[in-house]
Design a protein around this nucleic acid. Structure first.
Length: 337
DNA sequence: CTTATTCA
DNA sequence: TGAATAAGG
């Protein structure tokens, strides 16, 4: 998923309260996929309503978003449009992995194997009404939902550059390549997370990465950062075997341009110019409106409890918190409602 | 993941 | 109370 810059960028740990009053353009696919992958039972089965529809993502969106708003954050959710053509091979590869994982999951479930969960996670697929349902819930919650023409991270980055948002929210680093001045990771409220393997709990705090100071620290330009990414490999190209973040940085600093670096390596990247363009000049739109509305409490209850079998007690509680928090926002933030 | 419940 | 565990749909 996305580009792995390793430790190239300095990550600044922050408190959630540091984001109070700030607009965050959240990559909705990124978070939806996380919810889908993580919100599962012990054997890996996701939350499912009585019609057999998966509801893990709806649970995640309801509770986490309510928490963010309660923390004074103003989230905007940006949904992907058409993927760029160069992404096709990556998407096909992911599909293969998913199908394989699905088989492994069934086997593990049969045997009562604990590994079932991780296979289930790897089999996660966004499909059916998940996107529409997520959008519907977010709209009912009164939040702006933005439709990107292509990649959501690119649109989020554009909105930050436009000063319509403070940061792009995603676990991936791609928004940096798309030119987002600031990205936020670990945008959740519950700080404790179990470390894979042992039952050790670690405090996970939100962190920000600033593009400009990061580039200055590395002594490179954004164009060169894109060159580094293309050497390592992105969602749109495979990258060069044996080249990770450190070697890529060294090569680009030595040569200045990816073309010369590739010459030294005796390698070639197909469609190099188009790939650069994809990051440096991505498809985005200015046709969006950031407007926060009063949450539609009865609409949320109808949608989640009547249509998707959520517990009314839980949903009502969350909805009340949401409405209360939205009122606070209205007093202090002119753009609320 | 987040919330609810249990238990020292 | 706060940490560990179960449940959520």
């Amino acid at each position: 998923m996305g580009i792995d810059f390793g430790d190239l960028f300095e990550k600044k740990e922050i408190d959630l309260s540091d984001l109070r009053g700030k607009v965050i353009a959240i990559d909705a696919y990124n978070i939806l996929y996380q919810f889908l992958s993580i919100i599962r039972q012990r054997d890996g089965t996701p939350l499912i309503d009585s019609h057999g529809e998966i509801t893990s993502h709806l649970s995640g969106f309801l509770y986490r978003t309510t928490n963010l708003i309660e923390a004074g954050i103003r989230p905007v959710f940006v949904f992907d449009g058409e993927p760029p053509e160069f992404k096709n091979s990556t998407l096909n590869e992911r599909k293969k992995i998913r199908v394989e994982a699905m088989v492994r999951w069934e086997e593990a479930k049969e045997k009562g194997d604990e590994a079932a969960f991780k296979y289930a996670q790897a089999s996660s697929q966004i499909k059916g009404n998940m996107i529409e349902d997520a959008k519907k819930l977010l709209v009912l919650m009164g939040l702006p939902v933005i439709q990107a023409p292509s990649e959501g991270e690119a649109q989020a980055a554009f909105m930050v550059r436009n000063n319509d948002a403070y940061a792009a929210g995603s676990q991936d680093y791609d928004a940096l390549l798309f030119g987002a001045p600031v990205i936020v990771r670990n945008l959740a409220v519950t700080g404790k997370r179990k470390l894979p393997g042992m039952g050790v709990y670690v405090d996970i705090k939100p962190q920000i990465i600033e593009l400009e100071s990061g580039l200055t620290g590395l002594g490179i330009t954004r164009e060169q950062l894109v060159d580094i990414a293309l050497l390592i490999g992105t969602d749109y190209n495979a990258g060069i075997k044996g080249i990770g973040p450190k070697k890529a940085l060294k090569l680009i600093k030595k040569h200045g341009y990816i073309e010369q670096a590739l010459d030294e390596l005796g390698e070639d990247i197909k469609n190099l110019a188009e790939l650069k363009e994809l990051f440096l000049n991505p498809a985005v739109t200015s046709d969006y409106e950031l407007k926060w509305k009063k949450p539609d409490a009865s609409g949320i209850i109808e949608f989640l409890c009547i249509q998707h079998d959520f517990s009314e007690a839980r949903v009502s509680k969350a909805t009340e918190r949401l409405i209360e928090a939205s009122k606070d926002g209205q007093q202090t933030l002119d753009r609320w409602f």
